[in-house]
């Protein structure tokens, strides 16, 4: 079974609920994590939610010299193994979409979208259904 995000920019109001949902669903040590998704204005009052595309031939995976980024076969997401990551920032620099991020609130750890383990909080909470997580194929 394969899932995919369906993004409908026309429905996105830039309310940033997804951002909040993401941050809180990645809470650790009583601190919300850095959001892995951002609704970004591409024109006045026009928004598009930007998050990791879980690319097939991902630049982040290639850039990691320490094997910390691997495809999760169940969720299809590229997961970052915190125990392997040495915060060298290669993936942050290499991702062509800027979707590997530094979480300043958590000791500058590197974070990226993990599809919440298969049930993305952002899509759950998006009030306008601009973000839908759908079964494909």
């Amino acid at each position: 079974m394969k899932f995919q995000f369906e993004v409908k920019p026309s429905l996105c109001t830039g309310c940033r609920t997804c951002e909040l949902a993401c941050a809180f669903s990645h809470t650790r040590d009583k601190k919300p994590g850095r959001s892995r998704i951002y609704p970004i204005a591409y024109a006045p009052d026009k928004f598009v939610p930007v998050a990791c595309l879980q690319c097939d031939d991902a630049a982040c995976v290639k850039s990691c010299m320490f094997g910390a980024l691997k495809r999760n076969e169940t969720t299809g997401a590229i997961d970052l193994d915190r125990e392997r990551c040495v915060k060298c920032m290669a993936c942050v620099a290499a991702c062509p979409f800027g979707c590997a991020l530094v979480d300043e609130g958590h000791d500058n750890e590197i974070v990226k979208c993990d599809l919440c383990g298969g049930d993305p909080a952002c899509a759950h909470f998006c009030p306008t259904k601009a973000l839908v997580y759908k079964k494909i194929g």
Binding site: I40, Y42, V48, A93, A94, C95, F97, G98
Partner: peptide
């Protein structure tokens, strides 16, 4: 074997670029 251009801009600006392309 990563393309050189990937490294020219920072993650913040690359996200904006992506938004603009999608938009």
């Amino acid at each position: 074997g990563l393309p050189k251009e990937y490294f020219n801009t920072c993650d913040d600006c690359k996200r904006v670029e992506l938004a603009q392309k999608m938009g």
